[in-house]
């Protein structure tokens, strides 16, 4: 436990608070010293820890794959190349199975989603106090009050990270829909289904109903995508924090949960990737 002078609630809250830098109404651009400070900043704030870890892990992924791509050989693959090729073939296979259109974007997009989310998720397996304590020490050297240095290690337990990705996917869904069906086709898809009648007056009456249903369907995609990943990882993280509080018993508890969590980590990354592919293939194909 970090600091024996904390209550359990404080400990949990401390762990669930991001390191926030933003425009405080009173202090101007500054680090948030508490959850209340962070709230007061509203939209004009940035989670430094989330950005740091996600970009760092994304660059790790790209560096790893790029280093292989640079010296890729067509002969017998060895070591890391094996792994990279396996990943790429796995993603390529998934995309080919589901997405029947032609696109140079979908497959690399899926690979990035899978690997990036996997790496961000796997930070969950680092013991919950380890990196935050380190951050507090470093913050202490820079003159910050260690108690106010918040640090969340797993970027996917930040709704901003997951929603940022799912909204990008949503933008792609809109782009692909309009590109393959045209703007009028896309609007027709939103308004003329699922209720359709040859009677023109009845149809006009049905348009708002259709529109409501279809827009909900459409908006549910990015929201569910983001919330599913966020919810799973947030809950997992919370349980790790709770386990960390039970004292000596945490060791036998921690291990099975971590083993089980490996499944969730991989599965959630895979689900996010698969659903992205499915949504995009639905966007390119005629649905009705």
């Amino acid at each position: 436990m970090a600091g024996n002078n904390m209550t359990s609630t404080e400990y949990i809250q401390h762990h669930l608070q991001n390191l926030t830098y933003g425009l405080h109404p009173e202090n101007g651009w500054s680090m948030a010293h508490s959850a209340a400070d962070a709230k007061a900043m509203g939209f004009w704030a940035i989670h430094v820890d989330t950005m740091l870890w996600s970009i760092g892990l994304g660059m790790l992924f790209l560096w790893l794959f790029r280093s292989v791509a640079k010296r890729v050989s067509t002969g017998v693959p060895t070591g890391l190349q094996n792994f990279v090729e396996m990943m790429i073939e796995f993603v390529d296979g998934s995309v080919r199975e589901t997405f029947h259109g032609k696109s140079r974007l979908i497959a690399p997009l899926s690979l990035t989603i899978f690997c990036w989310i996997f790496l961000m998720n796997i930070m969950d397996l680092v013991p919950v106090d380890f990196l935050p304590l380190l951050a507090q020490k470093i913050g202490g050297w820079f003159g910050a009050d260690p108690a106010h240095v918040y640090f969340k290690v797993v970027p996917t337990t930040d709704i901003n990270a997951t929603l940022g990705m799912s909204l990008s996917v949503f933008a792609l869904i809109l782009f692909y829909s309009i590109r393959s069906k045209g703007l009028s086709g896309f609007i027709a898809e939103l308004t003329l289904h699922p209720f359709n009648t040859p009677n023109i007056f009845a149809q006009i009456l049905l348009i708002p109903v259709n529109f409501l249903l279809e827009v909900v369907t459409l908006l549910a995609k990015p929201v569910s995508l983001a919330l599913r990943l966020f919810g799973n990882l947030y809950a997992g993280e919370l349980i790790f924090i709770l386990i960390a509080m039970v004292g000596l018993w945490q060791l036998p508890l921690h291990f099975p949960w971590a083993v089980f969590h490996i499944l969730i980590i991989t599965l959630q990354a895979f689900i996010f990737m698969m659903l992205t592919i499915v949504y995009l293939s639905m966007a390119t194909e005629e649905q009705h």
Binding site: G22, A45, N160, L163, G164
Partner: peptide
């Protein structure tokens, strides 16, 4: 878990990575 600029930062980072 307040929505803020991180959202846009993540989206940009995502786009660049892709």
């Amino acid at each position: 878990m307040n929505l803020n600029l991180t959202l846009i930062g993540q989206a940009i980072a995502f786009a660049v990575f892709v």
